[in-house]
Amino acid sequence: MRSRIGSAAVRAATLLLVLAGLWALWEGYRKLWESTGWTRPFPVNATTLPHLHDIVGALFDPIREGEPLLARYMIDAALFTAKEAAVGFAIGATVGFLLGALIARFGVLQRGVMPYVVASQTIPILALAPIVVVGLGSVSIAGWTPKDWMRVSVIAAYLTFFPVTVNTVRGLRSADPAAVELMQSYAAREWSVFWKLRVPAAMPYLFSAFKVAATASVVGAVIGELPSSIQDGLGGWIINFNQYYALEPENLWAVNLVAAALGISFFLVVVLVEKLVVHRPPERLV
């Protein structure tokens, strides 16, 4: 117990040290470039590289006189984007797993489908997002039209499914051949082999994929908001602050900070679930 508290303290201290190091690098760079007047790779001033304390400070300034703090708006926007990303992650992970399971089971699909799965990821998401968002805008299922944010979730899902598919294929095939033979010796049905052997054996692979997918889903959600002119999420604020960058550069940096924090939170949720679900010898956790 004591050692657990000890190691938590060490980790917290390490985190603080790293943050302090990053702060020192950022501000040191500014100071050096400003004092020497170097202009490469770019001149340093309050617009190109605001002070870190100004960026954090921007969060705690009202966006206009008499209005709430920027942080208030950021929390709402982050929650909105988080909803899009979480739904996208769920769809992407499900589709990715099912596709991976089919490919792992039916070898023909490996050659037939996998190239298209790979090709799907070579299309720049910015080129695809408007097509999906606008295209799905006219879709209605039995009189029900998906809400705008759901279309953004589709973009997030598009970025999510790929790592999950690839790792599902690898993971399901990673079961020890002797363990498969053992299941045969019990005359186990294929369905049992899948659920009781292949899926558990794939768990470390799946969680590696979920970690990549979790952060990708946040990126997908932010990008998906751009062409759909959704104003409620982080993407909307990014567009907005982009236009005023010359005047208030620290605002854009502040949104970026919030977006990064959201991505990290998604990642940490996956790590937490993995700790609860996967029981493995510690060194075999991927």
């Binding site: 020890d176 002797a178 363990a179 033979e181 053992l182 045969q184 010796s185 019990y186 005359a187 052997l197 558990p200 768990m203 996967v278 029981h279 493995r280 010898p281 075999r284």
Partner: peptide
């Protein structure tokens, strides 16, 4: 006999499931 589960098998490696 296999389908009737007439025999038990033990391999050189224990082949235990790590997650159980």
């Amino acid at each position: 006999a296999r389908l009737d589960r007439d025999y038990g098998m033990v391999f050189q490696a224990a082949v235990l499931y790590d997650w159980r």
